[in-house]
Design a protein around this nucleic acid. Structure first.
Length: 190
DNA sequence: CCCTGATTCGC
DNA sequence: GCGAATCAGG
């Protein structure tokens, strides 16, 4: 693949939108994120600025590493289709993580169906919460359970972080409580 | 471990 | 000009 007008334009657009290099690479196809970053630099838009009044890159240090370095480890390619990114689609805050205190300015999204959970599922959540990995926001990936535990308004807040099922945002147990079969929790006057 | 962009340098 | 390898960091 080569950098046609069209592809470059897509690159510019997406980069301008703050998309990550890897996302752009996936969109374009046929290129790696490295290629994208390389192109970005050559185009001179390394900084997401674009214009402005003389934003100049401060002189960078040049360590001058001794080359001719051997390659102790080989790079491994991992073809894995990941259509979505975490930041784009925050999971609905489930049962836990809601005391009554809402951080100002960031009202939690409505929780249409966070009531009536099957006792079994609830039990497993408790169980899982005990062995949750307590990972931070940064640790969240495509394959870590994104179930919030604790109160976001306090320090007592982390994410489950256990391994997730293929495609699912949560681990086994949390998927169970997150995606209730429409049945089993029918009528229930509130 | 996963990811991010930045840089270098042989092609 | 291109991009893999590598670096540096969250």
């Amino acid at each position: 693949m080569s950098w046609t007008e069209e592809r470059v334009e897509t690159l510019k657009k997406m980069w301008g939108e703050g998309q990550s290099a890897s996302q752009i690479a996936k969109e374009l196809g046929g290129v790696t994120r490295n290629a994208v970053i390389g192109k970005v630099h050559r185009l001179g838009l390394s900084n997401r600025a674009g214009s402005g009044g003389g934003a100049k890159a401060p002189a960078k240090e040049k360590p001058v590493k001794a080359e001719a370095a051997p390659k102790p480890k080989a790079e491994v390619k991992q073809p894995k289709p990941e259509p979505a990114t975490v930041s784009a689609n925050p999971p609905p805050t489930p049962i836990s993580a809601r005391k009554q205190i809402i951080p100002a300015g960031q009202p939690l999204p409505p929780q249409p169906s966070a009531n009536e959970i099957s006792p079994e599922a609830l039990a497993s959540v408790r169980e899982v919460e005990k062995k949750a990995k307590k990972i931070s926001l940064m640790e969240l990936t495509e394959r870590t359970c994104k179930w919030p535990i604790g109160d976001p308004a306090t320090e007592e807040f982390w994410f489950c972080g256990l391994g997730v099922q293929q495609g699912k945002p949560y681990c086994e147990a949390h998927v169970g409580v997150a995606f209730q079969p429409m049945s089993s929790r029918r009528d229930r006057k509130r």
